[in-house]
Each structure stands twice: as structure tokens, then as C-alpha cells.
Design a protein around this nucleic acid. Structure first.
Lengths: 202, 202, 202, 202
DNA sequence: ACGTAAGCGAGACGGTACGTCGCGTCTTACC
DNA sequence: GGTAAGACGCGACGTACCGTCTCGCTTACGT
């Protein structure tokens, strides 16, 4: 699969590329759940054996694509700061995030849209919750009490974000990414503010 | 299927009851996706043929249970007002809703929890969005403009609610339904207020 | 099923009659093997339960019809002699037999024809072999030797007869029963004569 | 299914062989009609899917075996003449035919015997009638008249032969194939002579 | 003539077998 | 020596009939 210099074989890369594209096309046409491995291979003009050589199953293929996309996005957003050394504001992050979605809109649209897979939405929610949680100040009331637990808010925020994205993509991106990013960020802020008022109160 | 008096046969009711219970048990144990029709029947001590006589497949069985539960809840919440004729406040509705979830916590927990089916969460989100949308004042900006469309907010609110419920059930209902209901209602209000400020501004 | 006088209920008789007719119609249309009990009942406008109250299965229904027809034929042919006390000649028997077939031609045609049931042909062959055997002089060589056994000739003759009948019915009875009867009788005689010449020789 | 050189895969051949043998064993034990595809596979230690990959159903499997056996026999009998260029006599053909039956006696015995399938007997009858008809001089009376039609005699002869074979196999081949072949040939000749005397007379 | 037991229609039930589909693995003939 | 073609084992699917079983209804019989 890799040669001595860590560079993957040309054919392997071609196979993977074909499979990815075939998968996305098919999801757009018939929905993730109704796509079979056989169909993907037929579309990609690749043998089934080749598919299984490269991926465990269609879920793992999707995850691979997703993970790489996320990694690329995190690099672009610049987790540790902007290129000029200044921290990015949360809103900048939101916008960067939606621009990433925009760039991969066929992929996300296929998987989150009407024909998408709730399973992937779940996966994405979990990823986002992790990212949101890492950027949140730890809630003050960690004790028992009536607190909602430390992960309630991130979880809910992730759901809110994913749903916003799904809504946006399902309607063919009716406004620029910047626009929907602002909207989402505001809703998220509202939720966050409300939640932090509890911490203060209790 | 029904008698002249509209009363279903005893055997039919027994079969359906056994199948429902078996399904819920199995989802709790192994997750919806990993449950097969054959297992449901074995657990319910009912033949596979009997299953297919009563339900198209396991999805339709779940939907049936869900639809009946929702109908029951709507009756209980009293869509049109309380028994004393007074309108119920939104908060009362939220609480009624969470009490319903509490009553069916095994069912919802099984389907929304870690072992649940994202497919069902999707279904539930759609149902909630419909209910939320019906109770929302129509947004003022129907024109083209940069508006988010009339269903953006209900969709997002539904996602927020479902995620709250999932979170609550997954952790074994760490607080009384009333408590989580209040919390969810506040988050929802915050979102709503923010969204309506857009209408005012734009 | 029967009352004190051994007379069956009117409804029972009606049910049976309807079922018989429905069965024959259906065999003609689609062949015995492809007819289901449910279809018979639908055609007869009789409930499945009623069918099973009267017959074990479709095979037993056919056998009943056949057995009654055979009994009637045997009575008509007059196994013990003609009405005038004189023995019937074998040829007269053959003719009587084919006239019986002619009378029930829809039934036999349906069951022996292209759409018929090989199973029934088998049954009929066995019945005929028994009848033929009873009228045959016992072969002389019963000892071991190279003899063909006492039932070889009856078996073969029965097969020959059944096939003649099947041929005749399948082509819509292209000649009067008397005519085909003579032909069959001659072939049978030829076979018989040849077989008896063995007995003489060995 | 086939290679470029028309050679089937080893596994395919193994699977088919196992299935054939399992089928014949099971027919001998329990009769064709009472054998299920599942049992055949269990006995052959082959998956049900593999069965259906190779054969439409159990009927088609039997037909395949039969057709190949017949083809082999026709090759062996030498339809066009003996190896030395001389025409084979009809009796030689009969003997060759019964020797073929003898060679496959397990197969034919299972399918024609008491536990056999009348359906197969029918199939065999049809095949034989075709072969007999091809070797028969066309009857002289083709006109309307009371003629029996050109296929009456072949049909009847085929029935006679099949029944002879069935009788012979059912009793465990009580005499050598040559012996029963002679007997059958004589009966057939008698029938043929009688039938041709009609042509002469009419 | 009329009450009643029987036969009836409707249809669910447990079962068995079917033929299909898709998975992920494994083999083989070719290039 | 690696790859595509494709068979294989496995397991679930949804369907079709089977023969059995309630369950009310209704109807012909026999007193």
C-alpha cells in the first residue's frame, strides 16, 4: 500500500478517488442507506475486492472522507491562531467553518440532506460537540445539585449547528455561508448566554 | 381485522402487544439496528408470519408505537386548552411533553440513546418541527431578502429539543422531567427571542 | 355431518359440489400443481375452513372424485355381467370404460392433460393395473427363472391405457370413444399375446 | 461462470457435483417431492445461496442431470451408426439404452421408483416419445379419416418403455439389462406391428 | 314453528420453504 | 505477483401456502 517513502501507490490513490466520487454521486441519487458496496464499485469501475482492500465498509469510507475533511478544516481555521498571530474570534471561526462546509457542499449535502444518513448526522454531531466543548469555559457548578452536567450545552449546541447546516444545504444554500454562519452563531450565543445565566444563578 | 363492532380480536391485540414489548426490550439490549425481525418474534413467542401480518417491517412497527404515543400525548397535553377551559401556557406544554417522555422513557431511551436509531431521531425531529411550527407566529419577513425561510427556526428548535431529550435519557434521567423541561424551554425561548429580533431588525 | 338417516346436510353437499367444480375449472385453467386451496375456495365462494372440514387437502379431494367416478363406472360396466345375464366381452368392457372417460372428460382431461398432474396419472395407472391384473389369467411361470414377475404385464398395460386416454383427451377427443377403445384394445391384445408367447416358450 | 477457455472453475464444479450427489441420495431416502432445497444444501455441505447461484430450483437441477445423462447416452449409443460404420439394429439400440439406465440406476431408480416424482416420469416420457418418433417411419395415413394422428404410437410406446424401466428398477433390477431390453423391445415391436397393420388396412 | 346444534365466513396463528439480496471473504486465471 | 472477476458461506429478508384454531352468525332439522 505504501512504498518505502510513505507515498501510496498511484493505483491505490486512483482507486480511492474513484470510490469516493462514486459514493457521493450515488448518495445524491439514492440516499446513503440505499447504496450498496456493489453499486459503488460498479460506478467507480473498480472491483469489489479492491473496495475491501481499501475500506472496511461503506461507513468507514464515509468516515475517512469526513475525518480528512475535518482535519483539513481545522488546519485552515487555524486552531492555534491566525496567520498573523492574532487569535481568531469565535465568529471568524464560525465563518471559517461554514466556508469549509460550502467547499464540501456536495459531500455534506448528500449525507445530511433528505437522502442523507441519520447515522452520519449523529457522527457529525458528536464531532462538533467535542469541538464546542473544548472551546467552552468549564461550567462552574460541577457539584451534584440540579446542574445539567458539563456536556449538556455542547451537545445541544452541536445539534443546533448540524441542523442549521442541514437546513442550509437541503435548500441549496439560499444565502452565502457568511450569512448563515452569522445566524447560527447568534443562536448559539443566545443558547450559551442563557445557559451561563444558570451557572450564575445556581 | 376488525369486528362489526370495530373491536379487534383478542389474539390480534395480544400479538401486537407482545411484539411491541419484545421490540423495546431488544432495542435496549442490542440497539435497534442490530435487532432482526426473527429475534423480535422469538422474544415475543410469535411466528414471523404473524409479525408480517401485522407490520410491514420493524421500522413500521416503531412508527406505529411512536404515532400512538404521540397521539396519546397530544390528547393528554390538551392541544386546545386545559380541562378548566384555560389555555395552557407554553411552559405547561413543555412540562407535559417531558412527562410524556418520562412515561415512555424505556421506549424513547431505547430509540434515542446510544443504542438507538438515528433514523428514529430524524423521524422525531420532523414530528416536533411540525408541532413547533404550528404554534409559532408566522415570521414577519416572508419576502425574499436574506430571510432564513419560515421553517428554519422550527427545525432548529426541534433538533435542540430532541437532543435535550436524548441527553436526559441517556444519562438515566438525572433530574425530574419538570426540571429538564424548564431548562429546555429556556434555551428554546432564548433561540426564539434571538430569531424574532431578526424579524424586527430586518 | 350426517344425520340419523345417514343423509348429509344440504349445505355440506352444496359445499362439496361447489368445491369440486371449482377445482376442475381451476385445473383446466392453470394446472393442478399450480392451484392452491385458497384459490379453490375463492372460486367456489366457500371459506377455507369449510374446505378443510370436508377434505384433507386438494389431493384427497381429487381422489374422492376419482374414486366415486370409478365406482360408478364399475357399476355401469357391470363387473359381474351384462343386464341380460351374459358375460361382457373384453372389448365391450373397453368400450364401456372409454365411454365413462368420455362422460367425465372434463375431469380426466384436466388431470391427465398437458396441465394435469403426473401424480394423478400415477394413481390412475395403479388403479388400472389392479383392474387389469384381476382379469388376467395368472401367468404360468411363477418360479424364479428369467420370468418378468406376475405384475409386469398389468403394469405396462395400465401405462399404455392411461397414455392412450391422455393422448385422446389432450387432442380434444378427435374420434368417438368407441373408436379409440378399439384401437387401445388391439394394442393391449398385441402386448398380451406377445407376453403370453413367452410363457409358452419358457 | 466460464473462463475464456470455456473451462469452469474448480469450485463451481465441486459445488455442482456435491449438489447432484446430495440430491440423488435424498431422493432415494425420502422421495423427490419431500426433499427441500435446504436439505440438499445441508447434505452437500454447501450454502443455499450457492445452490441458487447454480440452479434455478430443484426441478432444474434434476433436468440438468437428466439432460446430460441423455446426451451422454446418445453419444454412446451412436445415433448415426456404430464405430465400424455399420448401422446399429433397433435391438442393439434398446440394449444400449437399458445399459445406460443400468449405469445411472441410482438416479433413475430414485426418480422413477415408488419415491420418485411423477413429474420426472412425465418429462422422461416426453423425451422418449421424441426419440421414438424420430426413428419411426411416418405413418401412411396422414389424411383426416379415423387415423390416430402421427404421435399416438410414439406416445404410447414411450409410456410403455418408461413403465418397463420403472418396473425393473423398482424391483432392484431382477434381471440383466439385456434381458429386460429384449422383453421391452418385443412388446414395443408387437405394438408397432399392430399399429402398422392399421395403416395397411385403412 | 321454532329452538338449537351444525355448518358457515372471516381471518389470525404457528410453521415450513421459498427465492432474493447484500455482506465480507477467498480463490483463481490472467496480465 | 498483483488484480478483476466472481463463487462462497452466512444470515436476514419478505412472500406464499399450508393446515389449525377461534369466533360470531345463520340456517336447515327435528321435535
Amino acid at each position: 500500500m505504501e512504498n518505502a517513502r510513505g507515498v501510496e501507490n498511484v493505483r491505490v490513490r486512483r482507486t480511492r478517488k474513484l470510490l469516493r466520487e462514486a459514493l457521493i454521486e450515488l448518495i445524491e441519487e439514492r440516499g446513503f442507506d440505499r447504496v450498496t458496496v456493489g453499486e459503488i464499485c460498479a460506478r467507480a469501475m473498480v472491483s469489489r475486492a479492491a473496495f475491501y482492500r481499501n475500506h472496511r465498509d461503506k461507513y468507514q469510507l464515509v468516515e475517512t472522507i469526513f475525518d480528512e475533511a475535518v482535519a483539513e478544516m481545522l488546519g485552515a481555521i487555524g486552531e492555534g491562531g491566525g496567520a498573523d498571530g492574532t487569535e481568531r474570534t469565535p465568529l471568524q471561526r464560525w465563518i471559517g467553518f461554514y466556508e469549509h462546509i460550502d467547499g464540501y457542499h456536495r459531500f455534506y449535502g448528500a449525507l445530511l440532506g433528505r437522502n442523507g444518513s441519520p447515522w452520519f448526522a449523529d457522527r457529525m454531531r458528536a464531532t462538533l460537540a467535542g469541538m464546542v466543548g473544548a472551546h467552552l469555559p468549564p461550567p462552574r457548578n460541577q457539584g451534584p445539585g440540579p446542574g445539567s452536567g458539563p456536556d449538556f450545552v455542547p451537545t445541544v449546541l452541536a445539534a443546533l449547528s448540524v441542523q442549521s447546516i442541514a437546513w442550509w444545504l437541503e435548500r441549496g444554500r439560499p444565502c452565502p455561508p457568511r450569512s448563515i454562519a452569522v445566524r447560527s452563531a447568534r443562536l448559539a450565543s443566545a443558547v450559551l448566554a442563557e445557559a451561563q445565566s444558570w451557572d450564575a444563578a445556581w
